[in-house]
């Protein structure tokens, strides 16, 4: 059983994002970290590795040189190998391009299972995972909240989270690609032994130019700040005055 986990480095939501008018992209002040949904995917792979014999759990990221720290985090959590497809482009890379690069790498590796987060926290597109599956001809399921592999039959049972807490249950034949929904497990903190091992571990680097060059299918035309949907009233004053105003408003509307 060979497993690939796709991870993305995202800006931490505590940071500040502003539009950079001169380069048509964004400026970000803050730290970068692993996409939360990918942490759940990696944790799920590690748990599979604890339940059955697994040859390798590879963690792969497509991104700028700084994405290395996120790949190292994956090694600290317990991934066996880190792979970095290094890109130079700093602006919006389309899901199709990212998926093409990963698929072009993964095709040779013949993974039995590919996991990714259901979406990236920053762009929330939910596209890369299913696109890789289509490119490789794997069956796929997104928003997976439970999975169970039958290694004898080489099948995978999955439950997808659909609307209002319902679950769609399906069975697929390996190789399979799943995108993992948050809440499927509790991602672990790295064990000290793994942290030490990861410190000097080599990461396989692949320049994106050496892989099949995908062509963008959509272009970004503009970035803008959202307009206020409702003309919301900003309550003024100190904390106590704001609390008083709020209660007054709720009282006038007969809610309290």
């Amino acid at each position: 059983m060979r497993i690939l986990v796709c991870i993305k480095q995202v800006p931490d939501s505590e940071g500040f994002i502003t539009i950079n008018e001169s380069n048509g992209w964004i400026d970000f002040e803050g730290s970068y970290r692993m996409n939360r949904f990918d942490e759940f995917a990696l944790e799920e792979a590690l748990r599979i590795g604890e339940k059955m014999p697994v040859d390798s759990i590879d963690a792969l990221s497509v991104g700028l040189p700084r994405a290395e720290s996120t790949i190292r985090k994956a090694l600290e959590m317990g991934a066996s190998r880190g792979i970095h497809i290094i890109t130079e482009e700093s602006s919006d890379m389309s899901a199709f391009e990212t998926a093409s690069l990963i698929a072009s790498f993964a095709r040779e590796e013949r993974y039995d299972l590919i996991l990714a987060g259901v979406m990236a926290e920053d762009d929330m597109q939910s596209q890369v995972g299913p696109m890789i599956a289509e490119m490789l001809g794997y069956p796929s399921a997104s928003s997976v909240i439970y999975e169970e592999i039958d290694p004898e039959r080489r099948t995978l049972f999955a439950e997808r989270e659909i609307e209002a807490g319902k679950r769609e249950c399906l069975e697929m034949k390996l190789p399979v690609l799943l995108t993992i929904q948050s809440g499927i497990n509790r991602p672990r903190y790295p064990a000290l032994s793994n942290v030490l091992r990861a410190r000097n571990q080599e990461i396989t680097t692949i320049p994106s130019q050496s892989l099949q060059k995908p062509v963008k299918r959509e272009r970004m035309v503009a970035l803008r700040y959202p307009e206020a949907l409702s003309k919301g009233i900003v309550l003024e004053g100190n904390e106590g005055e704001k609390a008083g105003s709020l209660l007054q408003i709720l009282h006038e509307k007969s809610i309290i």
Partner: peptide, 20 residues
């Protein structure tokens, strides 16, 4: 849950752009 499961694969299959 159907749309974002299906759309990216459909886009790749039909050589289409995909905006979610």
């Amino acid at each position: 849950a159907m749309g974002y499961d299906l759309a990216p694969r459909l886009a790749v299959r039909l050589k289409a752009s995909c905006i979610t």
